[in-house]
Design a protein around this nucleic acid. Structure first.
Length: 598
RNA sequence: GGGGGCGUAGCUCAGUUGGUUAGAGCGCUGCCCUGUCACGGCAGAGGCCGCGGGUUCGAGUCCCGUCGCUCCCGCCA
């Protein structure tokens, strides 16, 4: 017999009754009845009930066992007595009557239990990650992650993509997030950077003629964390294709995403054909470039209903600036004062002066609330007609310059959807967001910036683009890029683009964003050189693996789907990173520490 | 860098207008228990109420500061 086990803890069935077996695992739960003692023995594969009584020579030792001790047991598989079967366990028809126990590893008192699903503080969970990972939910999430990645790989290879590895130690890039830097010992004073994404490498792979690249790629960005953004490092399904249009990329990626989600959706429905929503439309309808389409609320411009009206605050805002607008956020089913007031105080909590509203209720079919009184019944009806609102509904209003308030309007749309339970929980709602602006105005620095990444191809003829005059800001700011996102349930899952493979267009684009040719040469010289020596038109996208798994696992936080995550302050509490290093190490790197003064 | 929430036993939490000795459940320790699977029963240990200062006759409770965790904003080509 094997030293540790003849079966796993999830293996035994009625067909094994009568067999002498050997199991190893953790003492998940121990129930000592004095004369009979049960141990739920757990390993990766499942749980088997192990029984001991005073007739067994292992009984004395069994009584000393504690939670999470690792033991080996020998015994005989037998049918459970009539009426004591456990239908919740695959092994629940049988049990193992123990003849011998060997303690392989004892466990001290636990800082957190493995048994049960009680919530524990994150710092304890992170410090004792290996215990947390023993727990069913996290264990399953990590296994799901592995299966999702397997599925992605298979689908990508079936789609004609080839897997490549790109360097981890590379050069710092001037755009984008802060880099993680690695000092060079051989070149004192110089640094490698960890890649924020293998962006340039994958483009160079296209220039090298490999045609279709993918990689489950680690990416490193020194940015502050969010619930859906790990600090430090995360993984992307990075992919790139040659000789493609935007549609070709969509047709390659959409089936992979849909297929993976359908495979692991667990009964939830998945969008069959991802709708394409232009960026500008997403902003005006949903107040976000990552709209949650499970939320049926669509906002509308209702400026005309307020222009010159008796509601002076809005009327004055509209009169004061031709670009000012009033947007309506319909709230079907929210037609009562309590809800409207709750939204209003929520808005104040968000730092807004308040949230104007009208609601329609029995006896006040013409609209209730101070705002309705100010603008009068005719305009109120105009709003109700435009938005299709009826008795029992409400509507909220925000006014000002859309570029300043659209985020808040989007947040209000989400809040209304949540409060009124309008968000369908049984669906994965996908869409493409397309036609992102190429440039944006940087108000702080009074200059034009790239609005997304500088490698996208502008949606403009080469001649016309090269002829652009830097002073023609309006025209420049109106240029769209072949830049696109995949959004699912309000989470940005991917970002991609058709790349700019023309050196002269790239020079022009960087010039518009205020980067002289020398900077471009210094920072992107490698890629620029490549583009001067025969580059195929190419494009790609990079879906975030962690976020995909998070959605499929039904988790709200990335840390629930990452094996060994860092906390929000980018610390690994288990390994103790980051940490100080020895003076000798620093000296070798020609680095002297100069801490900021408190 | 900024804002919100939280911080009471190992853990989850309760703790009234500021008022005797700060409680419960889980876990832990001991004893009892032969069919449990969230086993059950009895007993027990375990608290700088995050930390520092203040108001008060009296602070877990009120005020100020600080630290920790978390969520959000900035940031994330």
């Amino acid at each position: 017999m094997h030293r540790y086990r003849s079966h796993t803890c999830g293996a035994l069935r009625e067909t094994d009754i009568g067999k002498d077996v050997r199991l190893s695992g953790w003492c998940h739960r121990i129930r000592d009845h004095g004369g009979v003692l049960f141990i739920d023995l757990r390993d990766h594969y499942g749980i088997t009930q192990v029984v001991c009584d005073p007739d067994s020579k292992a009984f004395k030792l069994a009584e000393t066992l504690r939670s999470e001790w690792v033991i080996r047991v020998d015994g005989k598989t037998r049918k459970r007595p009539e009426g004591t079967e456990n239908p919740d366990l695959p092994t629940g028809q049988v049990e193992v009557y123990v003849s011998e126990i060997e303690v392989l590893s004892a466990a001290a008192e636990l800082p957190m239990p493995v048994f049960g699903e009680a919530d524990y503080p994150e710092d304890i969970r992170l410090k004792y990650r290996f215990l947390d990972l023993r727990r069913e939910k996290l264990h399953n999430n990590i296994m799901l992650r592995g299966r999702v990645i397997d599925s992605i790989r298979k689908r990508m290879k079936d789609g004609g993509f080839f897997e490549f590895q790109t360097p981890i130690l590379t050069a710092s890039s001037p755009e984008g997030a802060r880099d993680y830097l690695v000092p060079s010992r051989i070149h004192p004073g110089k640094f490698y950077a960890l890649p924020q994404a293998p962006q340039q490498f994958k483009q160079l792979i296209m220039v090298a003629g490999f045609d279709r690249y993918f990689q489950i790629a680690p990416c490193f960005r020194d940015e502050d964390a969010r619930a859906d953004r790990s600090p430090g490092e995360f993984y992307q399904l990075d992919l790139e294709m040659s000789f493609v249009t935007q549609d070709d990329v969509f047709n390659a990626v959409e089936p992979v995403m849909r297929g993976v989600f359908e495979e692991f959706a667990n009964g939830k429905s998945v969008t069959q054909k991802f709708p394409m929503i232009p960026y500008a439309e997403a902003i005006t309808k949903y107040g976000s470039d990552k709209p949650d389409l499970r939320n049926p609320i669509v906002m509308q411009d209702v400026s005309e209903a307020f222009r010159g009206s008796g509601f002076k605050i809005f009327a004055n805002i509209l009169a004061g600036d031709s670009k000012a607008q009033v947007w309506a956020i319909p709230a079907p089913g929210g037609g009562n004062r309590a809800f409207a007031d709750r939204m209003n105080s929520w808005a104040q909590g968000e730092g807004q002066p308040g949230l104007g509203y009208i609601f329609w209720r029995e006896g006040e079919e013409g609209g209730a609330g101070p705002l309705a009184k100010n603008i009068g019944p005719e305009r109120t009806k105009q709003i109700a007609d435009q938005l299709g609102l009826k008795v029992g509904d409400a509507c909220f209003f925000v006014a000002g310059l859309p570029k300043n308030f659209y985020k808040f309007a989007g947040a209000a749309r989400t809040k209304v959807g949540q409060e009124l339970n309008l968000i369908a929980q049984d669906r994965f709602e996908f869409c493409w967001i397309v036609d992102f602006p190429m440039f944006e105005w940087n108000e702080e620095e009074k200059k034009i910036d790239f609005s997304h990444n500088p490698f996208s191809m502008p949606q403009m003829g080469v001649e016309e683009f090269l002829a652009l005059d830097a002073s023609d800001a309006d025209k420049i700011l109106g240029i769209k890029a072949y830049q696109y996102d995949i959004v699912c349930n309000g989470t940005e899952l991917s970002s991609g683009a058709i790349r700019n493979h023309r050196p002269e267009v790239m020079e022009k684009a960087f010039a518009i964003a205020g980067y002289p040719k020398e900077v471009l040469e210094e920072k992107f010289g490698g890629m620029l050189n490549a583009f001067r020596l025969g580059a195929p038109p190419h494009g790609g996208i990079a879906p975030g693996i962690d976020r995909i798994v998070m959605l499929l696992a039904g988790e709200e936080n990335l840390r629930e789907v990452v094996l060994f995550p860092m906390n929000q302050k980018a610390e690994d509490l288990m390994m103790g990173a980051p940490a100080e290093v020895t003076p000798k190490q620093l000296k070798e790197l020609s680095i002297r520490i100069d801490l900021p003064k408190k």
